[in-house]
């Protein structure tokens, strides 16, 4: 009697999760499926996932050549890389100062960080747009990068992590003759690798996927990161031929999904910590 109830339960569990899994996965599957089909097949209303005639090569070639998709992808990697590097350079020392040093105004500084944490990026778009205009930055790589050089979330996360590192380690490093600067980079950051990974994922995913700010900051195609480039591609390709567009979408989504499947738990940790922001 017992094994029967257990298997019934497990059947119910898997059935329910199969339904939600389908709901979650259908867009991904359909995207890939359409990216493999010739134009005719997207029309004729077949449910089949795999195409009757494979059109993958044509679609993906078209996606890579009809629009500057390789350029969009490069822009994405480049902008995300620069943003992350600058964020780490700026956030680590200030987080260390907040966590381990005593100085007047420390609480005020931390309050500023919390205010920064509270303000959603979209609120800053208008003034930063004006600032970029004044500095003549609009429509440059710099425009894509500068609002994000300092990340209040990064400061907050690193400060929390540094707080858990015993003060004695800092004291020992000082006795060994290390400068505060060296302590930040040679002791604290290497010890904060979990925070570093979580923050890196949060930052890269956020900026790779960002559409709002690039839409405001750049106009020329050579500077567009992937989501914005995809919009441009979609708008000029007005036909109903989904193949190349789906191929382009697949290429844009793929890098993060692949890394996610490899480093799942890190991703989940980084993004939920960030969602908490």
């Amino acid at each position: 009697m017992k094994p029967f109830t257990i298997s019934l339960r497990s059947l119910g569990r898997h059935s329910f999760l199969a339904i939600t899994t389908t709901f979650v996965l259908v867009p991904f599957i359909w995207m890939i499926s359409l990216s493999l089909k010739p134009p005719g097949e997207s029309f004729n209303g077949s449910f089949s996932l795999l195409p009757q005639t494979w059109h993958a090569a044509q679609n993906y070639t078209r996606a890579m050549t009809a629009s500057p998709l390789p350029r969009f992808m490069f822009n994405g990697f480049f902008v995300c890389g620069v943003i992350l590097t600058l964020q780490l350079l700026v956030c680590t020392p200030i987080a260390y100062a907040l966590a381990k040093l005593k100085f007047p105004g420390r609480n005020v500084l931390f309050a500023l960080v919390l205010i920064g944490l509270l303000v959603p990026g979209q609120v800053l778009a208008l003034p930063l747009f004006i600032l970029a205009h004044q500095l003549n930055l609009l429509n440059t790589y710099a425009a894509l990068v500068f609002p994000f050089i300092v990340s209040p979330f990064g400061i907050f996360l690193f400060r929390q992590f540094f707080n858990t590192i015993p003060d004695d380690i800092v004291h020992a490093a000082r006795l060994d003759g290390m400068s505060e600067f060296a302590i930040v980079w040679r002791i604290m950051l290497p010890m904060a690798v979990p925070a570093l990974i979580a923050f890196s994922i949060f930052s890269v995913v956020g900026h790779w996927n960002d559409l709002f700010w690039p839409l405001i900051a750049v106009r020329s195609q050579e500077l567009m990161p992937p989501p914005l480039g995809l919009m441009a591609f979609k708008n000029e390709d007005t036909g109903i031929d989904y193949g190349p567009l789906m191929a382009a979408s697949t290429i844009v989504v793929a890098p993060l999904v692949i890394v996610f499947l490899v480093a799942q738990s890190w991703f989940i940790r980084g993004l939920t910590a960030g969602g908490v922001k």
Binding site: S10, H14, L17, T20, T21, V24, L25, V26, P27, F28, W30, M31, L34, S42, V205, W208, N209, L211, P226, P227, L228, L230, M231, K234, Y242, L245, M246, A248, S249, V252, V253, L256, V257, F260, L261, Q264, F267, I268, L271
Partner: peptide
């Protein structure tokens, strides 16, 4: 059984590029 699989699959949309996925939704 299959906990990690279900967890990963359901988390996928949260990290996938929404602009790209929106185009797929349009097709759907």
């Amino acid at each position: 059984t299959m906990r990690a699989f279900y967890r990963a699959v359901h988390f996928l949309p949260y990290m996938a590029t929404l602009a790209a996925m929106a185009i797929t939704w349009e097709a759907l």
